[in-house]
Design a protein around this nucleic acid. Structure first.
Lengths: 323, 323
RNA sequence: AGACACCAACUAGU
DNA sequence: ACTAGTTGGTGTCT
């Protein structure tokens, strides 16, 4: 199974009390720091310690994906290090490369392992990145206060209940089993809190979420009569093409296609009966789309009313994914 | 006699309805605001208006002590402005200094006067600061309610009936001209045929169509307070980033960038007050985007209503153009 | 000149 | 608890 971990560093005052953290999930993370260091030393140490810890836990054989917000770290390790090694660790201006010791430590630890780095924007609500950020800062603050930091459970942790990033963006979700068949007051206005409902409907379209199987006829119902869309190639889609678009993603079992996860789902109410849903979708092939969907609470033939997708627009996210 | 005055600003929502106030004593203070502005614009305007008002009252010869809780204002005026003037109003990161117009207005008003600034901690029980704070907020609330603010007695005697000439030089009056041609019944529903209007507004955003020049403040008006977007790279855009997104395309004269033409513009009504506009945009560099925009007929602070862009999503069209 | 990150300070609000 | 408006700086590389 592929390991996915965020790595982050912190330096109060920069330079100043320094902390680092790598984070897989609540039951699996590690942190540390020093009385003084730079931001970049913290960022590098987070990666170095992650490689060591995973290796020591006997998991060096698994592919590892490192989420990191520092382009300095990613470029250093994946782009610039080969040249530095060749040219005697001198940078473009002829002066020696800094933090060479940690970089060499990372280089050694990387040997024989399958590790990829992915840049994630800092402070943008990325779960793992935020989790690592908090803990790195907490470690730095501990050193600032002269205390010892919480070093975390490390790599084993029997408390392996380990919810894998189940993306609950608000604390308000409790029950609400399978929404689809629930409600049915008829009124002309939409149900009061369509937020959660629409989040689930959007997920259902992509074969995610609580609803188990999205049948073709269910998808038919979810699309408005005059639905339209724009796909990642910039092509305008009719309702029929939009249906195919969803069908081509959902309803396949192979591991090479399909939706891996939905993220950053936001629902905003535009008017009674009209909502905008934005989200970020990761596919199992590693591509990521950013989508905007307009949903309307439309009247159906039998005077029933349901939420239906009126328009869908997708854009491919081009975040540098470095290998 | 040395004049001592507090200056403070307020912005509900920030940005949002904005107010400013300068305060000498119960018989001598002034306030104003605008339908929208930032906290810092309010703080700066309070100082600018204080300088103007005291000057116009013939008291420019007296020393003036300004009590202010914004280090941004104090540092801008007393520490950073000399450097900015020297280096062409660029800040440390190379980007242009914001609110330059008000800053220059203050700089001009300061010439030949004896003015000192003193920092006072906000919300710490400081009498004059609290008095200015209340009145600035009251002014902002007036604009929020669509009413006129109490502008205060100004600089002379208590019963000074004379309209305080302040003539509203603030940022918010640049507008009002354009868009005039849409009518104005006030009702709660949008004008009956928004099709053509929205087509023009969408074009205006891109610097196309009948509207000749799209000013920055005009663009401000066209964007909903909570506007969001997705750009061709799949990045989520906040309102601020969306503004920059449009500004970067419009407002350049060179022939190597900008919008060449808009195409295939469709307007569909999602609900009363909510419309979806799709279009195809060709840029002069040959790239083509497909866009979806959601517009809402929103209530502005003065109980005016206008169409505003609520969400914008763009995707690059990849027509197999291999060169 | 560019990019990312790390911070510091004040204010305005929800 | 959160977001936004604004500035100053350093750490690192191309």
């Amino acid at each position: 199974m592929t390991l996915i971990a965020a790595a982050d560093g912190s330096s109060l005052g920069n330079p100043g009390p320094m902390g680092w953290c790598w984070y897989v999930d609540e039951g699996c993370w590690g942190a540390g720091g020093a009385r003084s260091g730079t931001n970049n030393i913290g960022e590098l140490l987070a990666v170095a310690e992650l490689l060591d810890a995973s290796s020591q836990a006997g998991r060096a054989g698994e592919p590892l994906r490192v989420l990191c917000d520092s382009q300095y770290v990613i470029n250093s390790v994946t782009k610039w290090m080969p040249g530095w090694k060749r040219k005697g660790w001198k940078k473009a201006d002829g002066k020696p490369v800094l933090n060479r010791d940690i970089l060499e430590r990372i280089d050694t630890a990387l040997a024989g392992r399958d590790v990829t780095f992915e840049w994630v924007k800092g402070h943008a609500g990325h779960r793992e990145n935020e989790a690592a950020d908090e803990r790195a800062r907490a470690a730095a603050e501990a050193y600032q206060a002269g205390a010892k930091p919480n070093t975390g459970p490390g790599f084993q942790g029997p408390a392996q209940a380990a919810e894998p990033l189940h993306s609950d963006t608000d604390a308000s979700d409790v029950d609400d089993a399978a929404l689809g068949e629930s409600e049915q007051h008829d009124p002309d206005v939409a149900p009061e809190s369509p937020q959660r409902l629409l989040r689930d409907l959007e997920a259902a379209l992509w074969g995610q979420g609580p609803t188990p199987a999205v049948t073709a006829s269910r998808r038919e119902e979810l699309l408005h009569d005059e639905a339209s869309g724009v796909d990642v190639h910039g092509s305008f889609l009719s309702r029929h093409e939009l249906l195919e678009h969803f069908a081509s993603v959902v309803g396949r079992d192979d591991l090479l296609a399909g939706v891996a996860s939905m993220d950053a789902v936001q629902v905003v109410t535009l008017a009674a009966n009209t909502c905008l849903v934005t989200s970020r979708i990761e596919f199992v092939d590693g591509t990521v789309q950013r989508t905007s969907s307009v949903w309307v609470y439309a009247r159906l033939v039998q005077n029933e009313r349901t939420w239906q997708l009126r328009h869908h627009h997708a854009t491919l996210v081009s975040n540098g994914a470095f290998a």
